[in-house]
Amino acid sequence: MKKFALLCLMLVASVLSLGAYAEEEEVVDTYAYYGFEPDIVTNYISNRKKLGFVKISVELMVKVPEDLIVLEHHDPLLRAAIIEILGAQTEDKVKSLTGKEEIRRECYDTLNRLLEQEIGKPLIVNLLFTKYLYD
């Protein structure tokens, strides 16, 4: 009888410790990235007589991997918005570090606003320029 009681006590203790462990476990966000293919290439307002251009790779970070399907569906709209933003920039802004950050932020805000209009909520957690070339 003592062995049975000891076995039951050990079983209860192990179940309780598993429950406590499950409560301590943090929920980890699973981020996913959507990249525009091919790279985005467009012109910008140049100070010279020569036409200026910029080529960028853009990655959109989302919290839920299933949101990648929504981004893929709206790719043409989002790409067009980025091209429009880049085309309106001056050479000085395109070529400066602070200008690049302002452009990135404007793209981020605009894309989230467009997604909110289309699907009712913003999806993008962050927008990254993984390639940023200009001439």
Results as ranks from 00 to 15, higher is better:
C8R: 10
L123Q: 00
N126L: 09
I124Y: 04
F129H: 03
E26H: 12
S14G: 02
L7C: 08
L97G: 09
D67R: 03
M61D: 02
V62F: 05
A22F: 08
Y108C: 08
L9N: 04
L86Y: 06
R48D: 10
E23W: 12
Y21G: 14
I103Q: 10
V15T: 07
G99W: 06
L128M: 10
D135L: 11
I83F: 07
L60W: 02
I40P: 00
V70R: 11
N47Q: 01
D75A: 15
K100T: 14
A32Q: 02
Y21H: 07
A81S: 15
F36P: 00
D39N: 12
Y31K: 01
F4D: 12
E72D: 14
V62Q: 02
D29Q: 11
L128T: 05
K50P: 00
R79E: 13
A81E: 14
D92G: 12
T42E: 01
I119A: 08
L68Y: 01
L77C: 13
V70I: 15
I85R: 06
K95G: 04
T110G: 10
C8L: 15
L51M: 14
I103W: 11
N43C: 04
K121E: 07
Y34F: 13
E101I: 14
Y134M: 06
N43I: 03
F4G: 08
F129T: 04
V94C: 02
G87V: 06
G35T: 12
L115G: 05
H73G: 09
Y132I: 11
S46K: 02
K131N: 15
N43W: 00
E101T: 15
L68S: 06
I45Y: 01
L16K: 01
L78T: 12
L111S: 04
K131M: 12
L77D: 12
P38T: 00
V27Q: 13
G99A: 11
R48Y: 04
Q117I: 05
C107P: 06
V62D: 01
V12F: 09
P122L: 08
V94K: 00
C107R: 10
L71P: 05
L86I: 11
L128G: 01
S57V: 09
Y108A: 08
A80L: 15
V94L: 03
F129I: 10
G120Q: 06
D75Y: 12
I119V: 15
Q89V: 04
L133S: 13
E116M: 11
Y134S: 10
K121G: 01
K95V: 07
T30R: 12
K50R: 05
L123V: 03
I56Q: 02
E37K: 10
G120C: 07
N47C: 00
F4N: 13
I40L: 06
I83P: 02
K49I: 12
R48M: 05
L18T: 03
I124F: 04
L133K: 07
K2H: 11
V15E: 01
L51K: 11
C107N: 14
A88R: 06
K131D: 13
P65Q: 09
F53H: 11
E26G: 09
Y31P: 00
